[in-house]
Amino acid sequence: MTINPDQPISFSRLHRLQWEEAQQKHVILYPEGMVELNQSSAAILQMCDGTRKLAEIVSDLENQFAATGLHNDISAFLEVALSNGWIQQH
């Protein structure tokens, strides 16, 4: 599955993204399952709020982390996220 650059990306209605104090990390919760996220994955997913498109997510994250050239890593991760159903477009 590929990300459509012209459509905003939102986090899945059927999953929940949440900070876990006990684990000191963000997790994705869904029926009978949990995925633990590292810091960068969590940062990317938090950008998926239904208003930003791919290019905006990349530029906002590049600003946030004072970095450049993140496009490939971010879009690769978002594709995984899409195929796992964590994010959606439409």
Partner: peptide, 8 residues
């Protein structure tokens, strides 16, 4: 409080 997060 101990860290349980999924509740059935």
């Amino acid at each position: 409080q101990l860290g349980a997060v999924q509740l059935g």
